[in-house]
Write a protein that binds this DNA or RNA. Structure first.
Lengths: 144, 144
DNA sequence: CCGATATAGATGTATATGCATCTATCTAGC
DNA sequence: GCTAGATAGATGCATATACATCTATATCGG
């Protein structure tokens, strides 16, 4: 009964986007009780790992346009999760996790881990690892 | 010149979304001269393959919420690409490619094929195929 | 037939996303 | 020090995306 419920698509990009949409719903469902969106969780986690980084650098880490970050960060800043300060280069905004951002990440982590664990079990660790590697290779292939 | 690599992310979903963003830019860059977005191309192609389908069915094929389709289809209908008619069940909207939609798809296909071919060459056919298969498995795993 | 319930899609709202363009700032060359 | 070009991020705009809720229609048990 694990038959293909969705038909294959000829487009590589469409296949990946479809998986991305489906996956996002699963992760967001787990985070919804916290009022946290997937992208926001990703930014919290990325900042936690990267420490203080300029906005453009965060954009490169996430392969996300810096101007997209402007809007999402504004939402997160309103909630007190993000601290911004100017570097020596006055054009740069250096970002870091504020205390409430760290707390929010900590609250979210158990839910995130449960989703990850469940999915990993269903896909199998080997497939999971291959897929992660491939996804990163694809990102690198098309990132200049 | 050595490529700046993106760091691995701990989140499966974030990795996939990142690859999805990067890939989308490549495909959309190729389609931009036609004023065609990636999602729109995907819908044209899906309808071309599926024939006449109700909106909900198209949503299941693309793992996309039916209400998301409402907005995107409205844009495409305005351009004359999509034909809608009611089925015996008056709640259903049955969708199909209109002539201009077929023409638009035909115009886009060579550009799409070039991007696909280039990416396939860079990733290698084996990796490409595995990745497509995995992506579909992920979609099926999380689609109820 | 009738009311209860289910389903298809539309609408309100909020976020995600990127490009074109703009402003402020920096840097290189003079 | 000045100016021309480069760079960081903000802003205007359009599309993508989904959930909660609403409306119209269908179906099912009496």
């Amino acid at each position: 009964m694990s038959k293909s419920l969705v038909p294959p698509l000829p487009c590589f990009c469409a296949s990946l986007r479809r998986a991305s949409r489906a996956l996002t719903q699963v992760y967001e469902q787990a985070l919804r009780p916290l009022g946290l969106r997937g992208t926001q969780f990703t930014i919290l986690q990325a900042l936690s790992l990267a420490g203080e980084v300029p906005q453009g650098e965060l954009g490169r880490i996430l392969a996300m346009d810096s101007t997209t970050l402007t809007r999402t960060l504004e939402i997160m800043r309103r909630r007190g999760w993000i601290a911004t300060r100017y570097g020596k280069d006055r054009r740069e905004r250096r970002l870091s996790l504020a205390r409430p951002g760290e707390a929010e990440l900590k609250r979210a982590l158990p839910r995130w881990e449960r989703v990850q664990a469940r999915l990993r079990r269903r896909l199998g660790t080997k497939r999971w690892n291959s897929f992660m590697t491939f996804a990163n290779q694809v990102t690198n292939e098309v990132t200049e």
